[in-house]
């Protein structure tokens, strides 16, 4: 039963990414040129709503569906990995015009060359796994 819920959340997310144009290469290009409010407004309103929702969760001690406390794990303290890893990700995000969610969404939408991006993203993930212990974190 819960499997169906996750599938439906995914369907909703996929439609949302497509209809909001967050999955459009053109919107990403326009954003990095600072030529439209669209993507900034999208992320800004997502964050404003997100911050409020997380604050409500924390202050009202909202529990999840299984009555367990909702915890968002703290991330490891570091600057290098986030800045360097983030920059590498950003280079790819601008080039492919899609972050991981939209890669799946656009594949489903029938843009088959996205499968090439998906395949190489898997290889990129694998390379990270191989080099992990040698990289500064």
């Amino acid at each position: 039963m819960r499997n169906i819920v996750f599938l439906l959340v995914g369907v909703f997310f996929g439609i949302l990414m497509f209809k909001s144009e967050a999955a459009s290469w053109f919107r990403i290009y326009e954003m990095f040129n600072f030529q439209s409010l669209h993507m900034f407004g999208l992320m800004g309103t997502a964050l404003a709503t997100g911050v409020i929702l997380v604050q409500i969760i924390k202050r009202k001690k909202v529990t999840d569906i299984d009555n367990k406390a909702i915890v968002i794990a703290d991330k490891d303290k570091s600057i290098t990995r986030y800045l360097v890893g983030g920059t590498i990700f950003g280079l790819g995000w601008a080039l492919a015009g899609a972050c991981p969610g939209p890669i799946f969404v656009l594949t489903g939408a029938g843009y088959l060359p996205m499968l090439v991006v998906l395949g190489s993203a898997l290889v990129g993930t694998w390379i990270y796994g191989l080099l992990k212990d040698k990289l500064p974190h």
Partner: peptide, 28 residues
């Protein structure tokens, strides 16, 4: 396309997340 995918995959794991995990969940 191949280079773009490689950078996205490698960068996301090095940074420990992508736009959904960091820019939305983390900053929220």
């Amino acid at each position: 396309l191949i280079v773009g995918g490689l950078l996205v995959g490698f960068g996301a794991r090095y940074a420990g997340g992508c736009t959904s995990g960091h820019s939305i969940s983390g900053i929220s």
